[in-house]
Amino acid sequence: MARVTEQAPKSAEPARWVVGITGASGAIYGITLCRQLLAAGFHLHLVITDAGWRVLKEELGWDAARRVECLNTAFDSALSENRMTYHPLNDIGASIASGSFRCAGMVIIPCSMGSLSAIANGASTNLLTRAADVMLKEGRPLLLVPRETPLHAIHLENMLKLARLGVRMIPAMPAFYNGPQSIEDIVSFLVGKVMDSMGIEHNLYKRWGQSNG
């Protein structure tokens, strides 16, 4: 008779998310999501494209020449305290480039049409698109927050192609039924919708039918 050995129970999915920020307008969406994930206790693996750094400079006043300092300032020393890992865009040998690296999934927020096109066509030309390709091949959650207007047929076809592969499309389209009073409220709504799709609890916006109490 074959010997039956006990197997150790499977461990829970690592509390790690990969976040990508690209050169689309709306860098504040990505920064806000990162802050929320860190506050919720997740370890964050962050990759930012060169165009993403340019947008951070233009929209939020970040100094792209002092990247580590900017990240530590924005995220309360999470980088130096090892609560967050920053991966340079060209580090194709980084942990997140391998399917053996376990994580809960990846969000690209905001996602430019260029990055979206590369992912849709399997062009792993940098660490961000390679990490997204890993999510697809490993069957892990991949969420994209495209930010562009107007959209032409190629944009739409690329989104449809990815959606049919199970990629979650969450375009940066804020709602107004919750009565936003500030830009922060608008940003919080969109980030909250992203976290809903990630399955993470939050209180970033008032839901439809939710009382004020």
Rank of each mutant, 00 (worst) to 15 (best):
S80P: 00
S80Y: 06
E81Q: 11
N82Q: 14
R83Q: 09
R83Y: 04
R83P: 00
M84I: 05
T85D: 09
Y86M: 07
H87W: 14
P88E: 12
N90F: 13
I92T: 09
I92V: 15
I92L: 15
G93V: 09
A94N: 14
I96K: 00
A97L: 06
G99Y: 14
F101H: 07
A104Q: 03
G105N: 08
V107N: 02
I108S: 00
I108F: 10
P110F: 03
P110M: 02
M113F: 14
G114I: 08
G114D: 15
S115E: 01
S115A: 15
L116A: 06
L116D: 00
I119N: 00
I119M: 14
I119L: 15
G122Y: 07
A123Y: 04
A123V: 12
T125E: 15
N126W: 13
N126K: 10
L127H: 04
L128M: 13
T129Y: 07
T129L: 11
R130I: 09
A131I: 10
A132T: 05
A132V: 03
D133I: 05
D133T: 12
M135I: 04
E138Q: 13
E138I: 13
G139N: 03
L143C: 02
V145W: 02
V145Y: 01
P150R: 10
P150I: 08
L151E: 01
H152A: 11
I154S: 12
H155R: 11
H155P: 08
L156F: 03
L156Q: 04
K161F: 13
L162Q: 00
L162D: 03
A163I: 01
R164H: 14
L165Q: 15
L165K: 15
G166L: 05
G166M: 02
